[in-house]
Nucleic acid binder design. Structure first.
Lengths: 218, 218
DNA sequence: ACCTGAACACCGTTCAAGT
DNA sequence: ACCTGAACACCGTTCAAGT
């Protein structure tokens, strides 16, 4: 009933283990990549490192600070956005597309950013590129700010929604019932609405429309 | 040291309290409205009702089922989207605007939907209205599906991002540093980027561009 | 400087037992 | 049918204590 306590440190026979701040951060990152932020607990992280929970606190402060540091790491890894194309519209659309892919390629980034409310941080590389291109296209001051923000909102909003919708097990039954009711008389429409959206096309249509309308008024 | 246990049921001297499923749901809704889904715990809810935690489980199953039920309640309360305007563009833009406001007026809905991944459920009233209007504007089949989804993604993505960004204590210092660097040479732009975005205008520009481009190709 | 265990104040959920 | 307490398996965080 007592006496045996279950061995606490899997890789260490006796005495204190040691970790570096760097080891804490990269193991944390691995856990987040495997199962999102909700898969990262301080206690699981400590166990993974073969160390007492409280050591983690010494190295990184607390869970929030740990997540913030992870966000910055991913951001550094993302680097800058590559711009292609020759016309202003094409170049700005290319920024939006590159941003979307850079973010979608890092699903854990969205997980981190959502929990910590650091959405604006996530968009920094995109903002840099947009400011430059809109300036090159002749927009300055508040007009430029509006243009940059428009595209930025489009990218960030779209991607976060896209991320939230994919991975869901199809539409819940309640939604299907409503769809049938709504699309009666247009069976082709009803069928198209069951399928997952073609997000590449949706994104392209939206971004191109916005950018064209922003630039043609200049 | 022992003997006194602190009175467990604030409103009930002795014996078992009683709750209805309805009381559980509306108290839960109040807690969510006060402090989001993370302010709702089964134990807090039970305490609020003066009942043992386990009673809650008898009435609603578990926490996820409880949240799902709350989503449906808010949705019923939202009702249908009112359409105004005479031209197709104006009518569809009005749907987007009404949807945005209906959702922003219910911040707890976003909180619920985020945690449960029910984004598509949140957009159902909007979808109904959009299907009707695009049909009236002459779009059918897969073209109509693309159009509906475009506007729907725009509204949902924008609103969720808008909600995530507001309530933040301004831009984090790291962002400010980057902005100064990026906007050098255009002080008016730099100033505009510090300010919170004018989301009404941003939304309007984006929606109008998208809807016009969807309809003009018809 | 870095690690430790104990403790506090929380969670969601299950289960056998009461009436 | 509906409520109960006890128990399990988790959380994040603080603190005094060790080396």
């Amino acid at each position: 009933m007592d006496g045996t306590r279950a061995t606490p440190k899997p890789g260490n026979a006796a005495g204190a283990s040691r970790v570096t701040r760097d080891a804490v951060l990269s193991t944390a990152m691995r856990l987040v990549m495997e199962s999102g932020t909700e898969g990262l607990s301080m206690r699981k992280l400590a166990a993974e490192l073969g160390v007492a929970v409280t050591s983690i606190y010494w190295h990184v402060g607390n869970r929030e600070a740990l997540l913030d540091e992870l966000v910055e790491r991913v951001l550094r890894d993302m680097g800058t956005i590559r711009v292609t194309g020759t016309t202003p519209v094409a170049r700005i659309v290319s920024i939006a597309q590159a941003s979307r892919h850079a973010i979608l390629d890092r699903p854990h980034l969205i997980s981190l950013v959502r929990e910590r409310g650091l959405d604006s941080l996530m968009m920094l590389p995109t903002r840099r590129a947009l400011v430059r291109e809109f300036a090159a296209a002749g927009l300055h001051g508040t007009r430029a700010a509006l243009a940059v923000q428009s595209v930025q909102y489009q990218v960030a909003g779209f991607v976060m929604l896209e991320r939230a919708l994919t991975g869901l097990p199809v539409e819940p039954p309640l939604v299907q019932a409503w769809l049938d009711e709504v699309a009666e008389g247009d069976p082709e429409l009803a069928r198209s609405m069951y399928d997952p959206a073609d997000t590449d096309t949706l994104f392209d249509v939206a971004v191109r429309s916005i950018v064209e309308s922003l630039l043609h008024e200049a």
